[in-house]
Computed example of a mutant assay.
Amino acid sequence: MAIPRTRPSVYPAIFSYGFRPFFLLGSLQAGTAILFWLPLYYGRLETFSTFLPVDWHVHELLFGYLPAVVTGFLLTAIPNWTGRLPVQDFRLLALVLLWIAGRAAVFFSAETGWLLSAVIDCSFLLAVVAAAATEIVAGRNWRNLKVLLPVATLFAANVMFHAEAHYQGISDMSRRLGLGAVVVLVMIIGGRIVPSFTRNWLVREKPGRLPASFGRFDVGTIALSAVGLAAWTFFPDSIATGMLLVAAAIFNAVRLARWAGYRTLPDPLVLILHVAFVFVPVGLLLAGLSVLVPDRIPTVAGIHAFAVGTVACMTLAVMARATLGHTGRELKASGGTCAIFAAIIIAAILRVAAGMAPAMAILLHLSAAFWAAAFIGYAVLFGGMLTRPRRNARSRNLS
Rank of each mutant, 00 (worst) to 15 (best):
Leu177Gln: 08
Leu177His: 08
Leu177Tyr: 11
Leu177Glu: 09
Gly178Gln: 08
Leu179Lys: 01
Leu179Ile: 10
Leu179Pro: 01
Leu179Tyr: 01
Leu179Ser: 02
Gly180His: 12
Gly180Asn: 10
Gly180Ser: 10
Gly180Met: 07
Gly180Pro: 10
Ala181Tyr: 14
Ala181Gln: 12
Ala181Leu: 12
Val182Thr: 12
Val182Ser: 10
Val183Ile: 14
Val183Cys: 06
Val183Pro: 09
Val183Asn: 08
Val183Tyr: 06
Val183Arg: 07
Val183Ser: 07
Val183Phe: 05
Val184Gln: 02
Val184Pro: 01
Leu185Asp: 11
Leu185Cys: 11
Leu185Tyr: 14
Leu185Pro: 12
Leu185Gln: 11
Val186His: 00
Val186Met: 03
Val186Leu: 07
Val186Ser: 01
Met187Gln: 13
Met187Cys: 15
Met187Ala: 09
Met187Val: 05
Met187Ile: 07
Ile188Tyr: 00
Ile188Trp: 00
Ile188Asp: 00
Ile188Gly: 00
Ile188Ala: 00
Ile188Cys: 00
Ile188Leu: 00
Ile189Arg: 12
Ile189Pro: 15
Ile189Glu: 13
Ile189Gly: 13
Gly190Pro: 14
Gly190Thr: 14
Gly190Ala: 13
Gly190Asn: 14
Gly190Cys: 11
Gly190Trp: 14
Gly190Glu: 15
Gly190Val: 13
Gly191Glu: 07
Gly191Pro: 14
Gly191Tyr: 07
Arg192Ser: 02
Arg192Gln: 06
Arg192Ile: 05
Arg192Thr: 05
Ile193Gly: 01
Ile193Cys: 01
Ile193Lys: 01
Ile193Trp: 01
Ile193Pro: 00
Ile193Tyr: 00
Val194Thr: 14
Val194Lys: 04
Val194Arg: 03
Val194His: 05
Pro195Val: 01
Pro195Asp: 03
Pro195Asn: 06
Pro195Cys: 04
Pro195Thr: 05
Ser196His: 14
Ser196Arg: 15
Ser196Tyr: 15
Phe197Trp: 13
Phe197Leu: 08
Phe197Cys: 04
Phe197Asp: 02
Thr198Met: 02
Thr198Trp: 03
Thr198Gln: 04
Arg199Cys: 05
Arg199Asp: 09
Arg199Met: 10
Arg199Glu: 13
Asn200Trp: 15
Asn200Asp: 15
Asn200Arg: 15
Asn200Ala: 13
Asn200Leu: 13
Asn200Ile: 14
Asn200Gly: 08
Trp201Ser: 09
Trp201His: 10
Trp201Cys: 08
Trp201Ala: 04
Trp201Tyr: 10
Trp201Glu: 07
Leu202Tyr: 09
Leu202His: 11
Leu202Thr: 09
Val203Thr: 14
Val203Asn: 13
Val203Tyr: 13
Val203Ala: 11
Val203Leu: 14
Arg204Val: 03
Arg204Ala: 12
Glu205Asp: 03
Glu205Arg: 09
Lys206Gln: 12
Lys206Val: 01
Lys206Ala: 06
Pro207Asn: 11
Pro207Phe: 09
Pro207Met: 11
Pro207Ser: 10
